[in-house]
Nucleic acid binder design. Structure first.
Lengths: 205, 205
DNA sequence: CTTCATATCTTGACAGTGTCAACATACGCT
DNA sequence: AGCGTATGTTGACACTGTCAAGATATGAAG
């Protein structure tokens, strides 16, 4: 199926668009992304992308979806790593979450930004990968509650919203460059972990 | 100083632009704001706004600045209300913060969105009103620590980043319509308050 | 191999955007 | 009265997303 670059049909335009868009976004931000330049970079005409994506928004959704699956893999990996104690995994999770956001700020902004989610403009593809990601957060919270790390009398859904909200908020404050800078990351994560696990028994970590 | 609408000079174009922009944003979102339509609505030509704002971004900054002063007044009012116990004020603060965000989602998005803050594009006007707002958060945190509501061994700055991060994150999850909806607001706020004040003594609230 | 539906890509066009340069008008001070 | 300056205007440019109509290649059916 490999195509020579000169052929009329590109061969794998869809993924090419996603990839170059993704690196463009990572470098110059989502705001500077134009379908026309993207098409030009791929050596294809302005309107070619419309045969693979209904919208500009649909392309962005596809990229965001990749981001969610990527993060989900990391999360699963941490949570399933039985070599670490629950306590260590919780702490690791926080650091990795913020690390992911800080390491891919533009992607993170895209994944959780208003444009994609507002007024039900999210693609079904995106939803089908993002929602399980949200549910996993609840699942983990429930586990950590059962382990006595998080308050057990709280409703798991609410608590998940609060804990994830905290990570999300810290990530955004960092990414948007307001109120916190990169050198504080680890301290902030530890502080958050301490606050949430306050009152939980310390085996020996 | 009042001008008849037919006169060549508008009279108070700057504030008019801010006001109509603000209501347009509140209704249709920041994404749908165009300087040209704005000028037309104000009965003025396309480029007139450029005599009052260097940029579109400068106009947005001005609006965001108004949002910060507005919120700052609310925050001060809550914090200074000595009729309530420290504990009650903390709880109230959380509810009002999320309430402010949920009540003015587009404005909130603008105030804390990437476009305004990234790459030092924030106006000095904006910074001069936003930064004190951030500092106030630290001031309050320090107070609540001293009152024994928040963990005292944590560094106030870090803790402020975490607590504010939590509010910010919950607000954004709500606003972006992902993972949480409006009917959960009060429960989420209470859950957050409980988690943060876990272990603090209950006088009788 | 021919035929033909379909997927893919192209050119042309339109309305809309932010923003600059050059010019016009009116306000306010000397 | 005169003049600098603040303000407002028209024209123009480069750019954007997106649609419609036409061109070309691909893959399956006959």
């Amino acid at each position: 199926m490999a195509q020579v670059s000169q052929s009329y049909h590109h061969g794998d335009l869809r993924q090419t668009l996603i990839n170059t868009a993704r690196s463009r976004i990572a470098e110059h931000g989502v705001g500077s992304l134009s379908l026309r330049k993207l098409a030009e970079d791929a050596g294809v005409s302005r309107t070619a992308p419309y045969h693979h994506f209904k919208d500009k928004s649909a392309l962005l959704s596809a990229i965001a979806a990749e981001g969610f699956t990527q993060w989900q893999q990391v999360a699963r990996e941490i949570f399933d790593n039985t070599e670490l104690s629950a306590r260590q995994r919780f702490r690791t999770f926080i650091h990795r979450y913020i690390g992911f956001a800080a390491g891919n700020p533009e992607l993170y902004e895209l994944m959780f930004g208003r444009p994609i989610w507002q007024s039900n403009s999210a693609t079904d593809d995106l939803k089908s990968v993002a929602y399980p990601c949200f549910q996993f957060q609840v699942e983990m919270t429930r586990y950590w509650q059962a382990q006595g790390l998080l308050p057990q009398q709280q409703d798991p859904l609410r608590l998940a919203q609060v804990t994830w909200g905290t990570l999300h908020g810290i990530a955004r404050l960092l990414i948007d460059g307001i109120y916190a800078d990169q050198s504080h990351i680890d301290d902030m994560c530890d502080c958050a972990a301490d606050v949430f696990m306050r009152g939980a028994p310390h085996p020996h970590e």
